[in-house]
Amino acid sequence: MSGGFTTILRRDLLLAMRRRGELANPLVFFLIVLTLVPLAVSPSPEQLAKIAPGIIWIMALLATLLSIDGLFQSDYRDGSLEQMIISPQPLWLIVLAKVLAHWLVTGLPLTLLSPLLGIMLSLPEAGYWPMVISLLVGTAALSLIGAIGAALTVALRRGGLLLSLVVTPLYMPVLVFGAGSVQRAVDGFSPDGPLLVVGALMALSLLLAPFACSGALKISMHG
């Protein structure tokens, strides 16, 4: 049963390595915007420190949203998705493998890059650990939730806008508690509460998203 999972995980990582340019897109976007903020808003560390938690989290969200659109798109166009759906392997496991591959090439590097951006936005020291932990767990939740939207809109010609409309409301709680945890730590409180909520959201989406996605993919194929 795990054969399908490892096969698709390896395949998607291999595909990602073959398209390194596309792979770097969300990261470059993340980096560019955060470089622009000090130039456009103000270079003063006090002011930047105030908005840093929010800005970093919003950019992580947008970078995920931008890249999740293509999760099933190319597989749908070249018939791979059809092969996955009719294969005897459980579709939810295949979906989970695809989402994991997506997170490994977007969410994880984004998280690893975030301390550097924290320095650029003069994030106070207390915020670093909560930021890394909330992004690590939170981006996984964002990938999982985004996959549902990607599965629902895969058969539409211009699904990008619809995808954002479907997914953004579901992203709100993750954003609120993710950025909230960093903000609380910066303000001198314990970030544990919001961090636990982010963890719970991620657990919930891990539980539901693969099934929702496989259902949505089957519906999309009927269209």
Partner: peptide, 9 residues
Amino acid sequence: HQPGIKSTL
């Protein structure tokens, strides 16, 4: 028709 062959592989 679309046999599921990835062009980059």
